[in-house]
């Protein structure tokens, strides 16, 4: 019976007769790219590895007892005292858990990825806001980047760039950059048309309109985008460790693979603490009280007010 139906079976299922050789097309393309463009991709590596090494060197070379107060002061200035205290405590906890070095590696890896997200994403976002044609090209690409499963582009990235931190950063970039681009575009579009008109009517160049009006007024939205970007980047740490990126993510990966739940948990806790810390910091910057200028808050404000008081006191006692 089965054999008598063989012909009909073939007729009813044409897919058995022919399928598009897309698989080999893609393979050929990738191999071709890897072959011919290796110097090009090596050149792309260069700025990434330069920044990565620089940041990592700073985080790892400075001893914790000096780095901690520096981080504390910077966070205090940017985000306020409460978040600064939280950050310090979180980092001290991680230090005593014995993962200081891993934390610093993850932090510098993140820092590099986010820095490139900013350098690339904000200009693209601005371009999209001011030019509908660019926007129409970029939007579908962003959709694509956000919906495509990670592993699909992890492989070609590894083929093109090899393994290690640079391809890790690039993979992270692809996941993390879309929200920043989208929200930059949104923020700039949201600026009142009349306010932009006013800036032009008083003789501003395009660049002046951008820096004097559009970017300051879009800043809140851009920072909301940055917050999302950082969170997305952090979510990549474990996956990036699959292509040999060291740090907290690697602990989770190794721990899980070797059923060392303790190691995996500590790595996970570290990532969670970093996530909370960075989330709070960027949110606080975004919602920052714009009535108070940077000279009046944080450690700088603290010192300036002390100096002023002293001056006032000395003039008072002098007179």
């Amino acid at each position: 019976m089965a054999s008598s139906l063989g012909g009909a079976d073939k007729l009813l299922n044409p897919f058995k007769i022919y399928s598009l050789p897309v698989e080999s097309w893609i393979n050929h393309t990738i191999f071709f790219l890897v072959d011919r463009l290796r110097p090009f991709f090596q050149a792309i590596r260069f700025p990434f590895s330069l920044v990565l090494d620089g940041i990592e060197w700073v985080f790892l070379a400075i001893p914790p007892l000096i780095l901690l107060p520096i981080i504390g002061l910077v966070v205090w200035q940017l985000a306020g005292r409460r978040i600064a205290i939280f950050s310090i405590v979180a980092l001290i906890v991680l230090g005593f858990l014995g993962v200081w070095q891993e934390t610093m590696m993850t932090l510098s890896f993140m820092g590099t990825a986010v820095l490139f997200c900013i350098l690339i994403g904000i200009p693209i976002g601005i371009a999209c806001a001011s030019n509908y044609r660019i926007d129409r090209v970029v939007q579908p690409i962003l959709d694509f980047m956000q919906t495509l499963p990670l592993f699909i582009y992890l492989v070609p990235i590894v083929m093109l760039f090899g393994i290690g931190k640079v391809p890790g950063v690039i993979a992270t970039l692809i996941v993390a950059i879309p929200p920043l681009i989208r929200l930059t575009t949104l923020g700039i579009r949201q600026v009142s048309k009349e306010v932009v008109e006013a800036a032009i009517a008083f003789g501003s160049t395009k660049r002046q309109v951008l820096w004097e009006v559009q970017i300051p007024l879009a800043m809140r939205t851009i920072l909301a985008g940055l917050n999302q970007t950082i969170m997305a980047a952090l979510s990549m740490t474990v996956i990036a460790s699959m292509i040999a990126v060291e740090g907290l993510g690697m602990m989770v990966l190794r721990g899980t693979a070797s059923l060392n739940i303790g190691q995996a948990s500590i790595g996970g806790l570290g990532i969670a603490l970093l996530a909370i810390m960075l989330d709070r910091i960027t949110q606080a910057i975004g919602q920052g009280n714009h009535q108070v200028s940077w000279q009046e808050r944080g450690p700088i404000g603290f010192i300036l007010s002390k100096v002023k008081n002293k001056k006032a006191a000395s003039t008072y006692s002098g007179s």
């Binding site: 009349e194 008109e197 006013a198 009517a201």
Partner: peptide, 17 residues
């Protein structure tokens, strides 16, 4: 625009920041 012609807007068009 810098020197000869200036403008006042219906909804003021002030820079809020």
């Amino acid at each position: 625009r810098l020197t000869k012609v200036s403008m006042v807007f219906q909804h003021f068009g002030l820079f809020p920041h």
